[in-house]
Design a protein around this nucleic acid. Sequence first.
DNA 1: GAAATTTGACCTAG
DNA 2: CTAGGTCAAATTTC
Length: 333
Amino acid sequence: MELSWPDSVLSNRERVMEELIQGRELASQLCRVLDDHKSTLVSGCGGGDVGSAEGLVTKILGSFANTIFILNGKEADGEIVSGDQIQGNSSGGGSADSSSWDANHAIIKSEDFHEEISCKSASTFKDRRGSYKRRKTSHSWTRDTPALTDDGHAWRKYGQKVIHNANHPRNYFRCTHKFDQSCQATKHVQQILDDPPVFRTTYYGNHTCRDYLKASELILDCTSHTESSSYIRFGDNKQDHPFFSSFTSVKKEVVVKEEKPQPSDEHLMASHHHNRSSSGDYNVSPHPTAFKSSCPLSGLSSTIDPYDYEGDVMSGLIVGPYYFDDEVLQYEF
DNA sequence: GAAATTTGACCTAG
DNA sequence: CTAGGTCAAATTTC
């Protein structure tokens, strides 16, 4: 019930450290790769180096993901629906916690980095509904969770569709700041299993909104919880780096919004109601442990930014100090 | 009254 | 043609 971090978390500290160190090393490599890439390429992407850079990014993300997952895993068990380690992936891998997010295995479906900029000029016509470009190549990643989780962003539902051969309808969400901040992030949420409820969330695009800025503030406010021993703080990086955007969470309205019951929704949403806000990954929490299992996923995935990828994947990325107990690991890329 | 959700229509890829 | 994704008017919620 309480968020007291068990000793097991501390026992995982070594693993966490390993992951972080590995991440840093990989990041360094990536920097070099990108550096070479930039210096050798006149412009644009399409070099062979990109491939290796991509691989590095994936590894790095996996590393961070693992780290956060390790940290979150214990907490999640304690707070989220107990014992709902879903066998998760429909792929049937069955790895214990993999369900919460594929990042553990760096399973990120990056089908393509060419995010389509749907020029919906036609949509200016009022009656022209659905004039859109079907996303077939956009960057996406999926995540399976035992309950509907809040990924920290403000989502607005814009559609629901019954999917063929699916028992539950698929819900479509877009970022609330789609228009005011041109944030093109969208996601689909669908319940794929009944008995142990499993919700599959597919994310498309990346958040470019800055709705998350308060996250660090909130977290910082919590830094007094030294006892909680482990938390991750993001420093001054107020850029909309995707990795951090996942931790933004945090606006209560966001949580409420997404957890709002949706009657017509086959309890898809209802199953994650206020009462179960705990199931949310990063609900606003006074605890530094506000980061939960889903954080990594979102952050991870979004790090592979279709927009940034060509250019500076991680340029300017400074992962603020990681505090583990009294230690601080600062990652700079 | 504003904002969010619902829901059927519209549109596109396969 | 079908299934999936999006739009936007209508409705609901706050």
